[in-house]
Nucleic acid binder design. Sequence first.
RNA 1: CGAGAAGUAGCACAGUUUGGUAGUGCAUUAGGUUUGGGACCUAGGGGUCGCAAGUUCGAAUCUUGUCUUCUCGACCA
Length: 469
Amino acid sequence: MEVKDITSRDVDFAKWYTDVCRKADLVDYSSIKGSMIIRPLGYAIWEEMVKVLDNEFKKTNHENVQMPLFIPESLLNVEKEHVEGFAPEVAWVTHGGSNLLDERMCVRPTSEVLFCDHYKKIIKSYRDLPKLYNQWCTIVRWEKTTRPFLRSREILWQEGHTMHETKEEALEETLRMFNIYKSFQEKYLAMPVITGRKTEKEKFAGAEITYTIEAMMYDGFALQNGTSHYFGQNFTKAFDITFIDKFNKLLMPYQTSWGVSTRMIGGLIMTHSDNNGLVLPPKIAPTKVIIIPIGEVREKLNLLKAELLKEGITFKVDESEKSPGFKFAEAEVKGYPIRVELGKRDLENNNVTLVRRDTLEKIVISYEEIVAKVKELLVTIQNDMYEKALIRRNSMIYDVLDYEELKTIAATKPGFIKINWCGNVECENKIKEDTTLKSRCLIEDEEVTAPCVVCGKPATTRLYIGKQY
RNA sequence: CGAGAAGUAGCACAGUUUGGUAGUGCAUUAGGUUUGGGACCUAGGGGUCGCAAGUUCGAAUCUUGUCUUCUCGACCA
């Protein structure tokens, strides 16, 4: 459990990642492949995420529900594209006790069909719309390769499923939730993200439009950190969901779904953490301040605790018998944004030492300044972490016009590549075959600058490509 | 799912080649001394060697199967 056990980030990034997950005590392996135990610190980070997002969902009039865990096979089969997309990775329940079931059921890999089955019953009139439901739950997808937080078989997440009277309303909802995710990741997780539509090839099974949020990890790989889908009437037609509008006409509603998962915790680690362990942005850190008393400082400690409590700044005090050096290292592994070293020797001069986790900078100030400085630092650290990640990310984005150059960069430089693309799936496939890079998302706010980088025909759009987790 | 590597105490590992009843460091418990970057002394506790079958008088060690983890590939809404 010592920092020196953490593999260097630049030596072996994959090993470093799992080391941080374990040493910071975020997660433990269970005896079931791909099903992890989320430990108290990992879960506390998730709870902070849930708190912020759930509040955003409720502010935008969404209601939480809880749907069944199982999906009967016949129900999963209702929407053709959807079942084809998910069938290879669902887990099946075939027995109840020792009796073979008449119809096998899968453990939900996502809940579109469950919501549709329910909406069919409760939506009758335009007065029943919109329906804005969300659920916090776990789902199961039988992944072949698994990694803590990034790709597990049991996934803790949130899925919103909404039904709307018009196409315009549904499209607006898709973008509304997409923007909530984007701004959450930028403002709270301090993660710069690229956002946009997925290509036809990469969109969600059954969706008309998929918007994606992609963050670049320290090693240049992309992590898809959230998606928002517009379904049009694909599912409502398949499920025959209808309502009567105000002119007494029978119509079909338009649908969306959107989700984020504990994968964001993996993104947080691979964006900000370092060789000393976890680094958490203050806004998402469950505990903002760790106080380490050195020597007999009880009186000042009690005073400080009362002041932080009054200010609503979450803190912990390490009053264990360990040596100060051990406590410093431990505090760094766990990623507390600010460490307060409350030492007898400093206090004789009326000083305390603050240490920023993101830069490890030591700041000596007088005792009276402490609360004001902590408040200031929490803001500074949050901003600096975003800026640092942004600069690094931007330095790893390449704009490429020539296909040979594309292959060279793909093979030698980690990161994202911007290209001009004709929109043809053959060109998309060729890039993947030649370079293993896949489409991340369309860049819709930039004009095309040259012909398609693959085929040389006129380009219709700009596109981000990159390797992914 | 394919190829490769690994699994011995909470963690990191030795012991396996050559079969003989399990060890080191850290952590942990008790008492004491310490305290500004991973303290020290003394005395303890903790492991059916991933699991299962087989070979053998005897298996951590040999054989087979299986599970889990890691790496590379395929897959990945």
